[in-house]
């Protein structure tokens, strides 16, 4: 079944076509979300929301772009939204903590550290450091960098997903690498790992 047939099936509410689409692209969508949110459970939840959106808005799909481009666009937008919401929540939590004396903080830390229990501490520290550095990048640089590094997408496809020019993608990725390197070097000098 080709992409056009799949989309036509989904537009008609055919669950079988939808299942084929999900099974073909689930790994790609989860990987994209994971690269941005760094938590597997959140990435899977986001990926599910991406596919739900695809099923519900399939009639709007004009077919002038590839399904993968459409999926990447929704996945990156939803991941960024989750990060923004988490930031907002953390802000209110920090206000709450100033009144409750930080009683809620311990439970949050134990939840995060329990995500990958089988990895040794150096690996965990290393990946935490990289995640922190990626999270500090401006949103556009972060998206371009993660699509290029985690999904190994060519610049042209990233340009289509982000709806910007090829030159802009090149510049975003170049600046992202430079910023990332600066942060990592700073950490190396301060011996934070």
């Amino acid at each position: 079944m080709d992409e056009a047939q799949l989309i036509k099936g989904i537009q008609q509410g055919d669950r079988k076509s939808f299942q084929i689409l999900v099974e073909s692209y689930q790994r790609m969508v989860v990987n994209t979300c994971l690269a941005i949110v760094h938590n597997k459970a959140d990435a899977e939840d986001l990926a599910q929301d991406v596919f739900l959106e695809i099923f519900r808005t399939a009639e709007n799909f004009r077919g002038d772009a590839k399904i993968s481009t459409w999926l990447y666009r929704i996945a990156t937008n939803r991941s960024l939204n989750l990060i923004r919401n988490n930031k907002r929540k953390r802000f209110f939590q920090s206000i709450e903590e100033t009144f409750t004396g930080g009683r809620n903080r311990n439970s949050e830390i134990s939840e995060n550290s329990g995500d990958q229990p089988d990895r040794n501490i150096t690996d965990q520290q290393r990946s935490d450091l990289l995640h922190r550095a990626i999270d500090r990048l401006p949103e556009k640089q972060r998206i371009a960098f993660t699509l290029n590094k985690y999904e190994e997408l060519p610049y042209q496809q990233i340009a289509e997903i982000m709806e910007i020019s090829l030159a802009s993608v090149e510049s975003l990725i170049h600046r992202a690498k430079r910023n990332l390197q600066e942060q990592l070097l700073d950490c190396y000098k301060k011996k934070c790992v």
Binding site: V22, R27, Q48
Partner: peptide
């Protein structure tokens, strides 16, 4: 140091997706 940091990406790439992914999605 930089090389080790960038290798983290390779280790995290393409995670195994839950086998119940579609079942959960279908229920949703």
């Amino acid at each position: 140091f930089l090389q080790e940091e960038m290798q983290v990406i390779g280790k995290e790439k393409n995670p195994e997706v839950s086998p119940f992914f579609y079942t959960r999605l279908s229920a949703k």
